[in-house]
Design a protein around this nucleic acid. Sequence first.
DNA 1: TTTTTAAAATAATCACCGTTATGCCAAAAA
DNA 2: TTTTTGGCATAACGGTGATTATTTTAAAAA
Lengths: 194, 194
Amino acid sequence: MQQRSIASAAISVIHGAGLEGTRLRDVARAAHVTTGAVTHYFDGKEAVLEAALEEVVRRTLQRLGRGRHKPPKDVETFVAQACAHLPVDEASQMEWRVWLAFWGKAIADDRLRAIHRRYYEAFVEHVAHVLRALKPNTSSREALLTADAVIATLDGVGVRAILEPEHWPSKRQRQTATALLVPLLREFEGAKKV
Amino acid sequence: MQQRSIASAAISVIHGAGLEGTRLRDVARAAHVTTGAVTHYFDGKEAVLEAALEEVVRRTLQRLGRGRHKPPKDVETFVAQACAHLPVDEASQMEWRVWLAFWGKAIADDRLRAIHRRYYEAFVEHVAHVLRALKPNTSSREALLTADAVIATLDGVGVRAILEPEHWPSKRQRQTATALLVPLLREFEGAKKV
DNA sequence: TTTTTAAAATAATCACCGTTATGCCAAAAA
DNA sequence: TTTTTGGCATAACGGTGATTATTTTAAAAA
């Protein structure tokens, strides 16, 4: 159970110092242990970072799971739910920053790429599932394509919001995401009521 | 003029090894010089990396500049032009990978963040300009909002394509981007001709 | 041609940080 | 109580790579 708390500590260090600025000592200190404990539980720094990424994925997917019981019946609530995944508050901002920090590292690291792949797979599946609630008789292909589009929207807006937080308050994030998602989903629904 | 070639060398090293795996020696070797030359022209590693990022920005904006003379008159050609900015070929893939590699680092680095901000500023301005060609009487506000949405689309699809290149051939990239952009731009145009 | 200055190579240094080794302490087993 | 085991702290080690210093080479000026 210590592993979890060390991984969480790593997340907050990465959040504050970036991946490159993350030293094992600081992770240990943030977890209220010493480097001895860290190396006791992990095979090395890489393993610690990997665990941190996995922890972020876990949290995000868990949050998705909680939303599974209220499938949206109309476009507006769908968009509102989708926007909740943007970096609009402290907690999600932290996860976004860490998630984004690993993108660059994942480019040259098969192991991390695999984690990303798994995450997106689950995310796509979730969005496609929710889309089917919006339009019951949808081809799998159409649902998946639209899910990709929804996720691209969130990633695109999220990245921008993380890189320019002072210019991207939650309102602007929602506005931009809405501008993309509403027309997309109207098209998806088929019925365009002005 | 050596600075340029060292920066370019840095780009290709980052492309191959990722930011963390980039050693100054390798950059020097790729530029056919030694570390002595590198440190002669730059104040240190940070400066070299910063120059690499600037070089990527330069190339991208230059490419944008070339497209400035053929403003699209309809949605289809606009989308086609936009999709040309996705990582659909070797060259643009390299630039995307490097660009993306710096996102994580920029989180904790004001200097790099400033570069990103400048780039997006120019990019937004360009897209908004092109949008005005599509719909002459557009409010500045509407054009900027739509430009943000277009850029978010490209970033969102681009990220995915970089992280999962084997699953995101150019065709899928275009498909996803089109699914988002066409409805968005029809809405933007105002006139929806089915 | 000599002198001078700049460009870049080569070689040495130095700091940083991950890793490894050792030792201690507490809790469970004997 | 003694013994033992495992969880962790402390501290020393060592590699890696950036930085700095020195030297060589080449080009330009005198």
